Simulated scan of single mutants.
Amino acid sequence: MKGKNACVLQDFAPIFVLAVSYINSLSYFVYEASLWQQKNLQHHPQKSSAARKAAPVKKSGEASKTSATAAPAKRTSNAAFMKPVTPTAILAAVIGDKPMPRTEVTKKIWDYIKRNDLQDKNNRRMINADEKLKPVFGGKDQVSMFEMTKLVSAQLK
């Protein structure tokens, strides 16, 4: 039995040597990393927690006012978007001639595009012009969504 075990251990001796050298090299890298970290901290010291600016302390009365009675602020609309604009006669053929906010103009144009299935099948960012939209698009057969907003803005007063 002793002869067989000794033979097996001899066969694994190169593997043990490789494992030990691997562990040594790994511990060397860990040692180098810790040295680098210490050196880096010496050159770039971080502020201590006492040196950091402390948050202002609220009085007990202020805390109860803001948390208990404050309702969530209602979002207000931007006045520039809500200002009514008048479409030109060319654009009025698509969305109507009444003055309306820019947001409504965009909504009505997209309703028209979807209702008439004018988005390109392969590239959904492209809009195909029909006979009503062609004058709005400056005679082009197809424009991108981003170019469309630019061309529509030119048709508003």
Rank of each mutant, 00 (worst) to 15 (best):
V57M: 14
V20E: 15
L35F: 07
D11V: 05
P135V: 03
K108G: 03
E131I: 04
K59I: 08
D11N: 03
K47I: 02
P84H: 13
I109G: 00
G96E: 07
A154E: 11
M126P: 00
A93Y: 04
K53I: 09
T66Y: 14
I127K: 01
L133D: 06
E131K: 10
A129P: 03
D97V: 01
A51D: 14
K39E: 12
S60H: 14
K98S: 11
A80M: 08
K4E: 08
S49Y: 01
C7M: 12
N116L: 07
L91W: 08
Q38W: 02
G138K: 03
A33H: 08
A55L: 15
K47R: 15
A89M: 05
M100N: 02
S25Y: 07
I95A: 05
T103A: 10
L35K: 10
R75I: 15
L9M: 07
Q155F: 00
G61K: 13
R124T: 10
F146E: 10
A63Y: 13
G96L: 06
A79Y: 06
A6P: 02
P84K: 15
E104C: 00
A68F: 13
K47S: 14
F12Q: 07
Q42C: 08
Y22L: 09
W36H: 08
M82Y: 01
F12N: 11
K114N: 09
K2Y: 07
L91R: 04
D117V: 05
A55C: 06
L133K: 04
A129M: 06
N128M: 06
K65G: 03
V30A: 13
I127C: 00
P84V: 13
Q37K: 12
Q142R: 11
A19K: 06
A55P: 12
L151V: 06
Y22F: 09
P84L: 14
L9K: 08
S25C: 03
K134V: 03
G3H: 11
K58W: 15
N123V: 01
H44F: 15
R52Q: 03
E104Q: 11
K114G: 05
M148A: 13
S60M: 14
D111W: 00
L91H: 02
A71F: 09
K121R: 05
A50Q: 14
S49W: 02
P56S: 07
T69D: 10
W36F: 09
D130L: 01
N123M: 00
N24I: 07
K98N: 10
K150F: 04
L133N: 05
